[in-house]
Design a protein around this nucleic acid. Structure first.
Length: 490
RNA sequence: GCGGAAGUAGCUCAAUUGGUAGAGCGAUAGCCUUCCAAGCUAUAGGUUGCGGGUUCGACCCUCGUCUUCCGCUCCA
Protein backbone atom coordinates (compact mmCIF):
# COMPACT_ATOMS: atom_id res chain seq x y z
CA UNK A 1 0.00 0.00 0.00
CA UNK A 2 2.62 2.47 1.04
CA UNK A 3 4.67 1.83 -2.06
CA UNK A 4 1.81 2.77 -4.29
CA UNK A 5 1.14 5.86 -2.21
CA UNK A 6 4.77 6.85 -2.09
CA UNK A 7 5.02 6.51 -5.82
CA UNK A 8 1.97 8.66 -6.16
CA UNK A 9 3.56 11.26 -3.91
CA UNK A 10 6.74 11.16 -6.00
CA UNK A 11 4.64 11.62 -9.12
CA UNK A 12 2.90 14.62 -7.64
CA UNK A 13 6.20 16.22 -6.65
CA UNK A 14 7.63 15.59 -10.13
CA UNK A 15 4.50 16.93 -11.76
CA UNK A 16 4.58 20.03 -9.57
CA UNK A 17 8.07 20.81 -10.73
CA UNK A 18 7.64 19.90 -14.37
CA UNK A 19 4.56 22.03 -14.84
CA UNK A 20 5.76 25.10 -12.99
CA UNK A 21 3.98 24.75 -9.67
CA UNK A 22 6.81 24.27 -7.17
CA UNK A 23 10.58 24.49 -7.54
CA UNK A 24 13.30 23.78 -4.96
CA UNK A 25 14.63 27.10 -3.69
CA UNK A 26 17.81 28.36 -5.35
CA UNK A 27 18.03 25.11 -7.25
CA UNK A 28 21.02 26.11 -9.37
CA UNK A 29 23.02 26.17 -6.13
CA UNK A 30 21.75 22.70 -5.21
CA UNK A 31 18.72 24.01 -3.40
CA UNK A 32 18.22 24.99 0.19
CA UNK A 33 16.91 22.27 2.43
CA UNK A 34 13.16 22.41 3.00
CA UNK A 35 12.67 25.70 1.21
CA UNK A 36 10.64 25.89 -1.99
CA UNK A 37 9.58 28.49 -4.53
CA UNK A 38 6.24 28.64 -6.26
CA UNK A 39 6.30 28.84 -10.05
CA UNK A 40 3.93 30.47 -12.54
CA UNK A 41 0.98 28.13 -12.00
CA UNK A 42 1.86 27.40 -8.38
CA UNK A 43 1.79 31.05 -7.42
CA UNK A 44 -1.59 31.46 -9.12
CA UNK A 45 -2.99 28.45 -7.32
CA UNK A 46 -1.57 29.53 -4.00
CA UNK A 47 -2.93 33.02 -4.42
CA UNK A 48 -6.35 31.64 -5.35
CA UNK A 49 -6.45 29.44 -2.26
CA UNK A 50 -5.45 32.41 -0.11
CA UNK A 51 -8.06 34.64 -1.73
CA UNK A 52 -10.74 32.01 -1.34
CA UNK A 53 -9.95 31.71 2.36
CA UNK A 54 -9.73 35.47 2.81
CA UNK A 55 -13.06 36.04 1.14
CA UNK A 56 -14.79 33.29 3.08
CA UNK A 57 -13.46 34.74 6.33
CA UNK A 58 -13.66 38.48 5.94
CA UNK A 59 -16.15 39.19 3.19
CA UNK A 60 -18.69 36.54 4.11
CA UNK A 61 -18.48 37.09 7.88
CA UNK A 62 -19.42 40.64 8.80
CA UNK A 63 -17.89 40.18 12.26
CA UNK A 64 -14.43 39.29 10.98
CA UNK A 65 -11.89 41.82 9.72
CA UNK A 66 -8.41 41.34 8.38
CA UNK A 67 -4.99 42.74 9.17
CA UNK A 68 -1.51 42.37 7.76
CA UNK A 69 1.00 42.50 10.60
CA UNK A 70 4.77 42.73 10.15
CA UNK A 71 6.97 39.68 10.37
CA UNK A 72 9.29 41.45 12.82
CA UNK A 73 7.81 41.99 16.24
CA UNK A 74 9.09 43.38 19.49
CA UNK A 75 11.18 40.62 21.10
CA UNK A 76 9.11 40.75 24.27
CA UNK A 77 6.19 39.46 22.24
CA UNK A 78 7.83 36.06 22.17
CA UNK A 79 8.59 36.09 25.88
CA UNK A 80 4.94 36.81 26.56
CA UNK A 81 3.73 34.16 24.14
CA UNK A 82 5.94 31.56 25.73
CA UNK A 83 7.92 30.86 22.58
CA UNK A 84 11.28 31.94 23.96
CA UNK A 85 10.97 29.50 26.83
CA UNK A 86 8.93 26.74 25.30
CA UNK A 87 9.65 26.75 21.62
CA UNK A 88 12.94 25.04 22.15
CA UNK A 89 13.57 21.54 23.25
CA UNK A 90 16.69 20.27 24.98
CA UNK A 91 17.69 17.07 23.20
CA UNK A 92 20.08 14.26 23.98
CA UNK A 93 21.42 11.42 21.85
CA UNK A 94 22.32 7.92 22.87
CA UNK A 95 25.70 7.20 21.32
CA UNK A 96 25.08 3.49 20.95
CA UNK A 97 21.60 3.35 19.50
CA UNK A 98 21.93 6.76 17.78
CA UNK A 99 18.49 7.52 19.12
CA UNK A 100 17.64 11.10 19.92
CA UNK A 101 15.36 11.97 22.77
CA UNK A 102 13.76 15.08 24.08
CA UNK A 103 15.25 15.34 27.53
CA UNK A 104 11.93 15.92 29.26
CA UNK A 105 10.36 12.94 27.47
CA UNK A 106 13.26 10.73 28.46
CA UNK A 107 13.06 11.66 32.12
CA UNK A 108 9.28 11.52 32.20
CA UNK A 109 9.36 8.01 30.79
CA UNK A 110 11.87 7.03 33.45
CA UNK A 111 9.67 8.50 36.19
CA UNK A 112 6.64 6.69 34.84
CA UNK A 113 8.57 3.48 35.02
CA UNK A 114 9.48 4.17 38.63
CA UNK A 115 5.86 4.82 39.49
CA UNK A 116 4.81 1.54 37.95
CA UNK A 117 7.38 -0.24 40.06
CA UNK A 118 5.97 1.37 43.18
CA UNK A 119 8.60 4.06 43.71
CA UNK A 120 6.14 6.91 43.48
CA UNK A 121 8.05 9.22 45.82
CA UNK A 122 11.26 8.83 43.93
CA UNK A 123 9.49 9.48 40.64
CA UNK A 124 7.97 12.67 42.00
CA UNK A 125 11.35 13.74 43.23
CA UNK A 126 12.99 13.20 39.86
CA UNK A 127 10.28 15.13 38.07
CA UNK A 128 10.55 18.02 40.49
CA UNK A 129 14.30 18.20 39.96
CA UNK A 130 13.79 18.08 36.22
CA UNK A 131 11.29 20.94 36.24
CA UNK A 132 13.62 23.07 38.35
CA UNK A 133 16.56 22.39 36.04
CA UNK A 134 14.54 22.96 32.89
CA UNK A 135 13.36 26.29 34.24
CA UNK A 136 16.99 27.36 34.69
CA UNK A 137 18.11 25.90 31.36
CA UNK A 138 20.66 24.00 33.42
CA UNK A 139 21.74 21.42 30.87
CA UNK A 140 24.72 20.23 32.89
CA UNK A 141 22.37 19.64 35.80
CA UNK A 142 19.95 17.74 33.61
CA UNK A 143 22.76 15.59 32.27
CA UNK A 144 23.83 14.87 35.84
CA UNK A 145 20.25 13.96 36.73
CA UNK A 146 20.21 11.46 33.87
CA UNK A 147 23.61 10.06 34.84
CA UNK A 148 22.84 9.88 38.57
CA UNK A 149 19.66 7.91 37.91
CA UNK A 150 21.40 5.75 35.33
CA UNK A 151 18.60 6.47 32.90
CA UNK A 152 19.17 4.31 29.89
CA UNK A 153 18.10 4.17 26.29
CA UNK A 154 15.26 1.75 25.68
CA UNK A 155 16.85 0.57 22.44
CA UNK A 156 20.49 0.05 23.34
CA UNK A 157 19.94 -0.27 27.07
CA UNK A 158 23.06 1.81 27.69
CA UNK A 159 23.56 5.15 29.39
CA UNK A 160 26.17 6.34 26.95
CA UNK A 161 24.78 9.84 26.28
CA UNK A 162 25.94 12.88 24.39
CA UNK A 163 25.77 16.29 26.00
CA UNK A 164 22.41 17.98 26.02
CA UNK A 165 21.89 20.38 23.18
CA UNK A 166 19.32 23.08 22.73
CA UNK A 167 17.37 23.39 19.54
CA UNK A 168 15.65 26.74 19.36
CA UNK A 169 13.07 26.69 16.65
CA UNK A 170 12.94 30.46 16.22
CA UNK A 171 15.12 32.18 13.63
CA UNK A 172 17.08 35.06 15.08
CA UNK A 173 18.48 38.04 13.31
CA UNK A 174 19.89 41.44 14.16
CA UNK A 175 17.73 44.49 14.11
CA UNK A 176 19.30 47.82 13.18
CA UNK A 177 22.56 48.38 11.38
CA UNK A 178 24.57 49.43 14.42
CA UNK A 179 26.02 46.69 16.56
CA UNK A 180 25.36 47.07 20.23
CA UNK A 181 27.71 46.26 23.09
CA UNK A 182 25.10 43.91 24.35
CA UNK A 183 24.16 41.65 21.42
CA UNK A 184 20.87 40.77 23.09
CA UNK A 185 19.72 44.34 22.56
CA UNK A 186 19.55 43.89 18.81
CA UNK A 187 17.98 40.48 18.54
CA UNK A 188 14.69 40.09 16.79
CA UNK A 189 13.02 36.90 15.73
CA UNK A 190 11.33 35.97 12.52
CA UNK A 191 7.83 35.21 13.76
CA UNK A 192 7.24 31.50 14.32
CA UNK A 193 3.50 32.05 14.00
CA UNK A 194 1.31 34.85 12.74
CA UNK A 195 -1.09 34.73 15.68
CA UNK A 196 0.81 37.16 17.91
CA UNK A 197 0.50 39.92 15.32
CA UNK A 198 -3.24 39.64 15.82
CA UNK A 199 -3.13 39.53 19.62
CA UNK A 200 -0.95 42.61 20.02
CA UNK A 201 -3.31 44.49 17.69
CA UNK A 202 -6.44 43.30 19.43
CA UNK A 203 -7.44 46.69 20.84
CA UNK A 204 -6.29 48.65 17.78
CA UNK A 205 -8.56 46.59 15.60
CA UNK A 206 -11.44 46.41 18.03
CA UNK A 207 -11.51 50.18 18.47
CA UNK A 208 -10.83 51.34 14.92
CA UNK A 209 -13.12 48.87 13.21
CA UNK A 210 -15.62 49.34 16.09
CA UNK A 211 -15.97 45.61 16.59
CA UNK A 212 -18.17 44.06 19.25
CA UNK A 213 -17.40 40.71 20.86
CA UNK A 214 -17.79 38.14 19.46
CA UNK A 215 -15.61 39.12 16.52
CA UNK A 216 -12.63 37.80 14.63
CA UNK A 217 -9.37 39.05 13.14
CA UNK A 218 -8.00 37.25 10.12
CA UNK A 219 -4.51 37.31 8.71
CA UNK A 220 -2.39 35.51 6.17
CA UNK A 221 1.37 35.65 6.13
CA UNK A 222 4.73 33.99 6.37
CA UNK A 223 6.04 32.34 9.49
CA UNK A 224 9.41 30.73 10.14
CA UNK A 225 10.48 27.72 12.16
CA UNK A 226 13.93 26.27 12.27
CA UNK A 227 12.68 22.70 12.28
CA UNK A 228 15.16 20.05 13.30
CA UNK A 229 13.93 17.90 10.49
CA UNK A 230 11.92 19.53 7.76
CA UNK A 231 10.90 17.22 4.97
CA UNK A 232 8.12 15.77 2.89
CA UNK A 233 8.16 18.35 0.15
CA UNK A 234 6.19 21.46 1.03
CA UNK A 235 4.46 19.73 3.93
CA UNK A 236 6.98 20.89 6.51
CA UNK A 237 9.05 23.86 5.44
CA UNK A 238 11.22 26.24 7.39
CA UNK A 239 9.48 29.19 5.77
CA UNK A 240 5.76 28.73 5.36
CA UNK A 241 2.55 30.67 5.12
CA UNK A 242 -0.31 30.57 7.56
CA UNK A 243 -3.91 31.64 7.26
CA UNK A 244 -5.14 32.38 10.74
CA UNK A 245 -8.23 33.74 12.35
CA UNK A 246 -8.49 34.57 16.01
CA UNK A 247 -12.08 34.81 17.21
CA UNK A 248 -12.63 36.77 20.42
CA UNK A 249 -15.52 35.66 22.59
CA UNK A 250 -17.05 36.30 25.99
CA UNK A 251 -15.61 33.95 28.64
CA UNK A 252 -18.00 31.09 29.19
CA UNK A 253 -19.08 30.95 25.56
CA UNK A 254 -15.81 29.51 24.24
CA UNK A 255 -17.14 25.96 24.23
CA UNK A 256 -19.94 26.67 21.79
CA UNK A 257 -17.73 28.85 19.60
CA UNK A 258 -15.05 26.19 19.50
CA UNK A 259 -17.67 23.73 18.31
CA UNK A 260 -18.99 26.25 15.81
CA UNK A 261 -15.60 26.92 14.20
CA UNK A 262 -14.62 23.30 14.26
CA UNK A 263 -17.63 22.52 12.10
CA UNK A 264 -17.44 25.71 10.06
CA UNK A 265 -13.86 25.10 9.01
CA UNK A 266 -14.55 21.58 7.81
CA UNK A 267 -17.44 22.97 5.75
CA UNK A 268 -15.01 25.35 4.11
CA UNK A 269 -12.82 22.46 3.03
CA UNK A 270 -15.79 20.53 1.70
CA UNK A 271 -17.00 23.59 -0.21
CA UNK A 272 -14.09 23.00 -2.55
CA UNK A 273 -15.71 19.75 -3.57
CA UNK A 274 -13.23 17.51 -1.82
CA UNK A 275 -14.38 14.07 -0.70
CA UNK A 276 -15.44 14.22 2.96
CA UNK A 277 -14.06 10.71 3.44
CA UNK A 278 -10.55 12.06 3.09
CA UNK A 279 -11.01 14.29 6.11
CA UNK A 280 -11.10 13.52 9.78
CA UNK A 281 -10.82 15.34 13.09
CA UNK A 282 -8.06 14.56 15.49
CA UNK A 283 -8.86 15.78 18.99
CA UNK A 284 -5.84 16.60 21.08
CA UNK A 285 -5.48 14.73 24.31
CA UNK A 286 -2.28 16.34 25.49
CA UNK A 287 -2.88 20.05 25.24
CA UNK A 288 -0.44 22.87 24.71
CA UNK A 289 0.24 25.21 27.60
CA UNK A 290 -2.38 27.72 26.49
CA UNK A 291 -5.13 25.43 25.29
CA UNK A 292 -8.48 24.46 26.73
CA UNK A 293 -9.54 22.36 23.77
CA UNK A 294 -7.83 21.65 20.51
CA UNK A 295 -8.27 19.57 17.42
CA UNK A 296 -6.72 19.14 14.02
CA UNK A 297 -8.46 18.78 10.74
CA UNK A 298 -6.51 16.00 9.06
CA UNK A 299 -6.48 15.09 5.42
CA UNK A 300 -5.49 11.83 3.83
CA UNK A 301 -2.39 12.88 1.90
CA UNK A 302 -0.52 10.30 -0.20
CA UNK A 303 1.75 10.03 2.84
CA UNK A 304 -1.16 9.30 5.19
CA UNK A 305 -3.49 11.36 7.35
CA UNK A 306 -1.75 14.60 8.27
CA UNK A 307 -2.74 17.85 9.92
CA UNK A 308 -3.74 20.63 7.59
CA UNK A 309 -5.56 22.92 10.01
CA UNK A 310 -5.82 23.37 13.76
CA UNK A 311 -8.70 24.73 15.80
CA UNK A 312 -7.69 25.73 19.29
CA UNK A 313 -9.56 27.13 22.22
CA UNK A 314 -6.81 29.33 23.67
CA UNK A 315 -8.66 30.81 26.66
CA UNK A 316 -7.44 34.32 27.57
CA UNK A 317 -3.86 33.10 27.73
CA UNK A 318 -2.42 35.28 24.95
CA UNK A 319 -4.12 38.54 25.81
CA UNK A 320 -3.44 38.05 29.52
CA UNK A 321 0.21 37.41 28.84
CA UNK A 322 0.49 40.53 26.71
CA UNK A 323 -1.28 42.51 29.40
CA UNK A 324 1.19 41.19 31.93
CA UNK A 325 4.32 41.89 29.87
CA UNK A 326 3.24 45.18 28.28
CA UNK A 327 1.45 46.47 31.35
CA UNK A 328 -1.29 47.68 28.99
CA UNK A 329 -4.84 46.62 29.76
CA UNK A 330 -6.21 44.24 27.16
CA UNK A 331 -9.78 44.45 28.36
CA UNK A 332 -12.98 44.78 26.46
CA UNK A 333 -16.06 46.46 27.89
CA UNK A 334 -19.13 44.44 27.03
CA UNK A 335 -22.33 46.51 27.07
CA UNK A 336 -24.59 43.54 26.45
CA UNK A 337 -26.93 42.80 29.34
CA UNK A 338 -26.27 39.70 31.40
CA UNK A 339 -29.72 38.13 31.92
CA UNK A 340 -28.59 36.76 35.29
CA UNK A 341 -27.79 40.16 36.77
CA UNK A 342 -29.71 42.51 34.54
CA UNK A 343 -26.50 44.54 34.16
CA UNK A 344 -23.86 44.77 31.40
CA UNK A 345 -21.26 42.03 31.32
CA UNK A 346 -18.67 44.76 31.80
CA UNK A 347 -14.90 44.48 31.54
CA UNK A 348 -13.15 41.26 30.73
CA UNK A 349 -10.30 39.84 28.73
CA UNK A 350 -11.92 37.91 25.87
CA UNK A 351 -11.33 34.23 25.29
CA UNK A 352 -9.98 33.21 21.93
CA UNK A 353 -10.85 30.50 19.43
CA UNK A 354 -8.12 30.12 16.85
CA UNK A 355 -8.39 28.58 13.41
CA UNK A 356 -4.99 28.16 11.84
CA UNK A 357 -4.41 26.58 8.46
CA UNK A 358 -1.14 26.09 6.61
CA UNK A 359 -1.46 27.60 3.16
CA UNK A 360 1.33 25.45 1.76
CA UNK A 361 -0.29 22.36 3.22
CA UNK A 362 -3.60 23.38 1.72
CA UNK A 363 -1.80 23.77 -1.59
CA UNK A 364 -0.38 20.27 -1.26
CA UNK A 365 -3.81 19.01 -0.27
CA UNK A 366 -5.37 20.49 -3.40
CA UNK A 367 -2.61 19.09 -5.56
CA UNK A 368 -2.80 15.63 -3.97
CA UNK A 369 -6.54 15.55 -4.30
CA UNK A 370 -6.53 16.83 -7.86
CA UNK A 371 -3.81 14.63 -9.31
CA UNK A 372 -5.10 11.78 -11.46
CA UNK A 373 -3.39 9.54 -13.93
CA UNK A 374 -6.10 8.31 -16.26
CA UNK A 375 -6.26 5.67 -18.93
CA UNK A 376 -8.57 6.54 -21.78
CA UNK A 377 -10.10 4.04 -24.17
CA UNK A 378 -10.23 5.42 -27.67
CA UNK A 379 -12.77 4.64 -30.36
CA UNK A 380 -10.35 2.54 -32.36
CA UNK A 381 -9.82 0.27 -29.39
CA UNK A 382 -6.43 1.58 -28.38
CA UNK A 383 -5.80 3.23 -25.07
CA UNK A 384 -4.28 6.51 -24.17
CA UNK A 385 -3.27 8.15 -20.93
CA UNK A 386 -3.43 11.57 -19.47
CA UNK A 387 -2.51 13.34 -16.27
CA UNK A 388 -5.22 15.66 -15.13
CA UNK A 389 -5.42 18.02 -12.17
CA UNK A 390 -9.05 18.12 -11.13
CA UNK A 391 -8.81 21.42 -9.34
CA UNK A 392 -12.01 23.19 -8.41
CA UNK A 393 -12.57 25.98 -10.97
CA UNK A 394 -12.81 28.48 -8.10
CA UNK A 395 -9.09 28.12 -7.43
CA UNK A 396 -7.71 26.74 -10.69
CA UNK A 397 -4.67 28.72 -11.90
CA UNK A 398 -6.11 29.20 -15.39
CA UNK A 399 -9.86 29.25 -15.83
CA UNK A 400 -10.18 29.16 -19.59
CA UNK A 401 -7.92 28.19 -22.47
CA UNK A 402 -8.76 29.50 -25.92
CA UNK A 403 -7.64 27.66 -29.05
CA UNK A 404 -8.13 28.31 -32.73
CA UNK A 405 -8.46 24.92 -34.38
CA UNK A 406 -5.95 25.95 -37.02
CA UNK A 407 -3.53 28.82 -37.46
CA UNK A 408 -5.17 30.19 -40.57
CA UNK A 409 -8.48 31.08 -42.19
CA UNK A 410 -8.97 33.91 -39.73
CA UNK A 411 -9.52 31.61 -36.76
CA UNK A 412 -6.70 33.08 -34.62
CA UNK A 413 -8.18 36.53 -35.08
CA UNK A 414 -11.54 35.45 -33.69
CA UNK A 415 -9.87 33.52 -30.89
CA UNK A 416 -7.74 36.48 -29.85
CA UNK A 417 -10.79 38.70 -29.79
CA UNK A 418 -12.49 36.32 -27.38
CA UNK A 419 -9.26 36.06 -25.37
CA UNK A 420 -8.93 39.83 -25.04
CA UNK A 421 -12.51 40.07 -23.90
CA UNK A 422 -12.41 37.21 -21.36
CA UNK A 423 -9.05 38.07 -19.82
CA UNK A 424 -10.60 41.14 -18.28
CA UNK A 425 -12.74 38.91 -16.09
CA UNK A 426 -10.66 35.83 -15.28
CA UNK A 427 -7.33 34.21 -16.03
CA UNK A 428 -7.19 32.94 -19.61
CA UNK A 429 -4.61 31.22 -21.76
CA UNK A 430 -4.25 31.44 -25.52
CA UNK A 431 -2.43 28.94 -27.72
CA UNK A 432 -2.42 28.04 -31.40
CA UNK A 433 0.55 25.67 -31.53
CA UNK A 434 0.32 21.87 -32.01
CA UNK A 435 -2.61 19.56 -32.56
CA UNK A 436 -5.75 20.33 -30.62
CA UNK A 437 -5.54 17.14 -28.56
CA UNK A 438 -2.07 18.00 -27.38
CA UNK A 439 -3.22 21.43 -26.32
CA UNK A 440 -6.09 19.91 -24.34
CA UNK A 441 -3.71 17.60 -22.54
CA UNK A 442 -1.39 20.41 -21.59
CA UNK A 443 -4.29 22.24 -20.00
CA UNK A 444 -5.40 19.05 -18.21
CA UNK A 445 -1.94 18.86 -16.67
CA UNK A 446 -2.24 22.29 -15.09
CA UNK A 447 -5.88 21.93 -14.12
CA UNK A 448 -7.60 24.32 -16.52
CA UNK A 449 -11.29 23.46 -16.19
CA UNK A 450 -12.50 24.82 -19.52
CA UNK A 451 -11.15 25.00 -23.06
CA UNK A 452 -12.92 26.55 -26.01
CA UNK A 453 -12.01 25.90 -29.62
CA UNK A 454 -12.74 28.21 -32.51
CA UNK A 455 -13.34 26.34 -35.77
CA UNK A 456 -14.70 27.07 -39.23
CA UNK A 457 -18.28 26.79 -38.05
CA UNK A 458 -17.59 29.68 -35.69
CA UNK A 459 -17.37 31.99 -38.67
CA UNK A 460 -20.83 30.95 -39.79
CA UNK A 461 -22.89 30.85 -36.60
CA UNK A 462 -20.72 32.42 -33.90
CA UNK A 463 -20.55 29.26 -31.80
CA UNK A 464 -17.52 27.57 -30.32
CA UNK A 465 -16.81 24.18 -28.81
CA UNK A 466 -16.41 24.16 -25.05
CA UNK A 467 -14.57 21.18 -23.65
CA UNK A 468 -14.73 20.12 -20.01
CA UNK A 469 -11.58 18.99 -18.29
CA UNK A 470 -12.91 16.27 -16.00
CA UNK A 471 -15.34 14.54 -18.38
CA UNK A 472 -13.61 15.48 -21.64
CA UNK A 473 -17.11 16.08 -22.96
CA UNK A 474 -17.67 18.96 -25.33
CA UNK A 475 -20.59 20.98 -26.57
CA UNK A 476 -21.25 23.95 -28.81
CA UNK A 477 -22.19 27.21 -27.25
CA UNK A 478 -22.63 30.73 -28.53
CA UNK A 479 -19.69 33.08 -28.12
CA UNK A 480 -21.95 35.40 -26.14
CA UNK A 481 -22.45 32.76 -23.47
CA UNK A 482 -18.78 31.93 -22.81
CA UNK A 483 -18.21 34.45 -20.05
CA UNK A 484 -21.35 33.71 -18.09
CA UNK A 485 -20.76 29.98 -18.47
CA UNK A 486 -17.30 30.25 -16.90
CA UNK A 487 -18.32 32.74 -14.27
CA UNK A 488 -21.09 30.58 -12.87
CA UNK A 489 -18.50 27.99 -11.90
CA UNK A 490 -16.23 30.43 -10.09
C1' G B 1 20.64 14.78 13.67
C1' C B 2 21.50 9.14 12.89
C1' G B 3 21.16 4.87 9.38
C1' G B 4 20.13 3.26 4.20
C1' A B 5 19.60 4.52 -1.14
C1' A B 6 20.09 7.80 -5.19
C1' G B 7 22.06 12.05 -8.29
C1' U B 8 23.94 11.61 -16.53
C1' A B 9 19.80 16.91 -21.46
C1' G B 10 13.48 19.90 -19.08
C1' C B 11 11.53 14.37 -18.25
C1' U B 12 12.45 8.79 -18.53
C1' C B 13 16.76 6.31 -19.24
C1' A B 14 21.44 4.33 -22.02
C1' A B 15 26.89 4.37 -22.41
C1' U B 16 30.17 -3.21 -23.35
C1' U B 17 34.04 -5.02 -15.60
C1' G B 18 38.16 3.22 -16.58
C1' G B 19 39.06 4.98 -23.20
C1' U B 20 36.76 11.21 -22.94
C1' A B 21 28.24 11.01 -23.50
C1' G B 22 23.52 8.82 -26.82
C1' A B 23 18.12 7.77 -27.54
C1' G B 24 12.91 8.54 -26.91
C1' C B 25 9.67 12.05 -25.19
C1' G B 26 9.54 17.25 -24.33
C1' A B 27 11.00 22.36 -25.99
C1' U B 28 11.78 26.00 -30.07
C1' A B 29 11.11 27.39 -35.52
C1' G B 30 8.75 25.95 -40.06
C1' C B 31 5.46 22.66 -43.08
C1' C B 32 0.60 20.01 -42.72
C1' U B 33 -4.71 21.12 -40.93
C1' U B 34 -7.11 16.69 -38.65
C1' C B 35 -11.66 18.25 -32.04
C1' C B 36 -8.41 14.66 -27.59
C1' A B 37 -0.63 13.81 -26.66
C1' A B 38 2.77 9.66 -30.82
C1' G B 39 2.60 13.20 -39.58
C1' C B 40 7.22 15.74 -41.85
C1' U B 41 11.82 18.96 -41.58
C1' A B 42 15.28 21.63 -38.86
C1' U B 43 17.45 23.71 -34.33
C1' A B 44 18.87 24.19 -29.37
C1' G B 45 20.55 21.53 -24.50
C1' G B 46 25.11 18.08 -20.56
C1' U B 47 33.14 20.50 -17.90
C1' U B 48 27.81 13.30 -16.03
C1' G B 49 25.25 17.49 -8.46
C1' C B 50 29.86 20.00 -6.63
C1' G B 51 35.16 19.68 -4.92
C1' G B 52 39.60 16.86 -4.11
C1' G B 53 42.39 12.03 -4.94
C1' U B 54 44.18 7.58 -7.80
C1' U B 55 45.30 7.00 -13.22
C1' C B 56 48.39 8.16 -19.44
C1' G B 57 43.03 8.62 -19.21
C1' A B 58 37.27 8.86 -14.55
C1' C B 59 29.98 8.94 -15.67
C1' C B 60 32.52 4.40 -13.94
C1' C B 61 37.34 3.52 -8.53
C1' U B 62 38.17 6.53 -3.81
C1' C B 63 37.40 10.57 -0.08
C1' G B 64 34.66 14.80 1.19
C1' U B 65 30.44 17.82 0.43
C1' C B 66 25.41 19.30 -1.20
C1' U B 67 20.52 17.89 -2.39
C1' U B 68 16.52 14.46 -2.62
C1' C B 69 13.96 9.96 -1.17
C1' C B 70 13.04 5.91 2.69
C1' G B 71 13.31 4.53 8.05
C1' C B 72 14.15 6.52 13.02
C1' U B 73 13.58 11.07 15.60
C1' C B 74 10.95 15.73 16.03
C1' C B 75 6.47 18.40 15.11
C1' A B 76 2.48 24.68 20.12
Amino acid sequence: MSTQQDNNFQSIIAHAKEYGFVFPSSEIYDGLSAVYDYGPYGSELKKNIRDYWWKSMTQLNDNIVGIDAAIFMHPTTWKASGHVDNFSDPMIDNKDSKKRYRVDHLIEAFAENLTEQGFRDKAENVLQQMDALLAKDDFAGLKKLIDDNKISCSISGTSNWTDIRQFNLMFKTEFGAVASDNPDDNIVYLRPETAQGIFVNFLNVQKTARMKVPFGIAQTGKAFRNEIVARQFIFRMREFEQMEMQFFVRPGTEGEWYKFWKEERLKWHLSLGIDAGKYRYHDHVKLAHYAKEACDIEFEFPIGFKEVEGIHSRSDFDLSQHQLYSKKKQQYFDTDIDPNTGKPYGNYIPYVIETSIGLDRMFLLILSNAYHEETISKEDGTTDSRVVLQINPKIAPIKLAIFPLTKKDGLPEIAKEIFDDCKQDFRCFYEEKDAIGKRYRRQDAIGTPFCITIDHQTKEDKTVTIRYRDTMQQERISIDLIKSKIKESL
